[in-house]
């Protein structure tokens, strides 16, 4: 969603862990936004090179694709911090407070578990590409461990932010599912 609504974000209270994780996620968000802007610039450069100069465009398409992938993965923790990942909160809304609290802890724990699994295999995949020296099969031939690095980094930071969210709910610093009492 765009603009103008007040952006809700994870509450951190006076907890140093939560503040630190929040800062890391925000930094990741800046990185992600920068990558998207870079993708805009490079694409425009590519059109200029091809349409105006009628030259070859060797590396641009690939670079832009990897930038958008990295922007997505590295942006994950920041969007989690901004409560930007859409969910269906119909049932949590209907539940009484204590049940909602435990459901939130359950869903956060499972979320952390699945992202942890993906982080693990993502890191393994990255390491595999690094060790074997894989390159993309294009003229540019980028070393694939570079774009693949966004997998462990993005998923790892998302895992960290989710853990912070869990801590905040357990310590009652933030509300379960961010829902106010009706």
């Amino acid at each position: 969603m765009t603009g103008h609504q007040t952006v809700t974000q994870a509450r951190v209270g006076n907890n140093y862990f939560l503040k630190a994780v929040g800062a890391i996620s925000t930094l990741a968000g800046w990185t992600s936004a920068t990558m998207i802007v870079l993708a805009v610039a490079i694409t425009c450069q590519m059109i200029f090179v091809r349409f105006v100069l009628n030259h070859s465009t060797i590396w641009q398409t690939e670079m832009v694709v990897y930038l958008v992938i990295a922007a997505t993965l590295i942006g994950l923790p920041y969007v989690q911090r901004l409560r930007g990942h859409v969910n269906v909160d119909l049932i949590p809304l209907m539940l009484p407070r204590p049940v909602r609290f435990y459901l939130c802890i359950l869903t956060l724990t499972i979320s952390i578990a699945i992202i942890a699994v993906m982080f693990w295999y993502g890191a393994e995949f990255w390491h595999f590409a690094y060790e074997r020296g894989w390159k993309s099969d294009t003229v540019w031939g980028v070393r694939l461990w570079i774009p693949y690095l966004s997998l462990p980094v993005g998923l790892g930071l998302l895992m960290l932010q989710l853990t912070a969210d869990l801590v905040a709910v357990v310590l009652k610093i933030d509300l379960p599912f961010g829902l106010e009492d009706s």
């Binding site: 091809r50 009628n54 030259h55 070859s56 465009t57 060797i58 398409t61 690939e62 294009t138 003229v139």
Partner: peptide
Amino acid sequence: LAGAGASIASM
């Protein structure tokens, strides 16, 4: 093809 003076567009 680039050697022959073509401009390459990857897709």
